[in-house]
Amino acid sequence: MAAKSANLYARIEPEVKEQAESILSALGIPASNAINMFYKQIILHRGLPFEVKIPSGKTLDMSVLSEKEMNAELEKGYADMKAGRTKSAKKAFADIRGDYHV
């Protein structure tokens, strides 16, 4: 294994750093090791080890919806169900696994 002698300086948002380091700490992984793993994955993939793209649809954060907005979203779902715009749970989970490579 090569000696670790190169330094990396990066400016990131304090909240992002704090949240990520909290998760890494719970996993028992020092931030420097995580960064090293990330760089190794970049090398293995010859690019970023995940897709970087603009989501095709607007992600809905239900925690910020008012009761009226929540009811409107539920009505949309009910209308889709009545119109037959549904898919089986098996298909939905297969799509999720495919989207997130799990």
Score class of each variant (00 low, 15 high):
residue 55 P to Q: 03
residue 33 N to A: 08
residue 21 E to W: 00
residue 80 D to I: 01
residue 50 F to N: 00
residue 20 A to G: 01
residue 64 V to K: 15
residue 9 Y to A: 09
residue 26 A to H: 07
residue 79 A to G: 01
residue 53 K to C: 05
residue 22 S to H: 13
residue 78 Y to Q: 04
residue 11 R to C: 01
residue 91 K to W: 02
residue 12 I to N: 06
residue 69 E to Y: 06
residue 93 F to Q: 10
residue 41 Q to I: 01
residue 6 A to L: 13
residue 92 A to D: 08
residue 8 L to A: 12
residue 47 G to L: 04
residue 15 E to D: 12
residue 7 N to Y: 15
residue 79 A to I: 12
residue 74 L to M: 14
residue 56 S to Q: 10
residue 74 L to N: 08
residue 71 N to L: 13
residue 101 H to G: 07
residue 76 K to M: 06
residue 30 P to S: 06
residue 11 R to V: 10
residue 13 E to F: 05
residue 39 Y to K: 08
residue 44 L to T: 13
residue 2 A to S: 14
residue 78 Y to M: 08
residue 82 K to H: 09
residue 20 A to H: 03
residue 54 I to Q: 10
residue 41 Q to G: 03
residue 10 A to M: 12
residue 3 A to S: 09
residue 75 E to F: 07
residue 38 F to D: 01
residue 34 A to V: 00
residue 3 A to Q: 13
residue 68 K to V: 08
residue 26 A to T: 08
residue 83 A to Q: 09
residue 23 I to H: 04
residue 21 E to N: 09
residue 8 L to G: 01
residue 37 M to W: 08
residue 21 E to T: 01
residue 29 I to M: 07
residue 26 A to S: 12
residue 81 M to V: 06
residue 49 P to L: 02
residue 74 L to V: 07
residue 52 V to F: 15
residue 68 K to W: 05
residue 100 Y to C: 01
residue 21 E to R: 05
residue 13 E to K: 13
residue 46 R to V: 02
residue 62 M to R: 14
residue 26 A to F: 10
residue 26 A to P: 00
residue 52 V to I: 15
residue 37 M to I: 01
residue 55 P to M: 04
residue 32 S to C: 04
residue 100 Y to G: 00
residue 84 G to R: 02
residue 44 L to H: 11
residue 33 N to F: 03
residue 77 G to Q: 05
residue 43 I to P: 02
residue 69 E to L: 08
residue 56 S to D: 15
residue 95 D to W: 05
residue 59 T to N: 06
residue 70 M to I: 00
residue 58 K to E: 15
residue 17 K to Y: 09
residue 31 A to H: 10
residue 84 G to K: 02
residue 25 S to V: 00
residue 96 I to H: 15
residue 100 Y to A: 02
residue 53 K to W: 03
residue 52 V to D: 00
residue 61 D to N: 14
residue 32 S to V: 06
residue 61 D to S: 05
residue 23 I to P: 01
residue 57 G to E: 15
residue 82 K to R: 11
residue 15 E to Y: 07
residue 13 E to N: 14
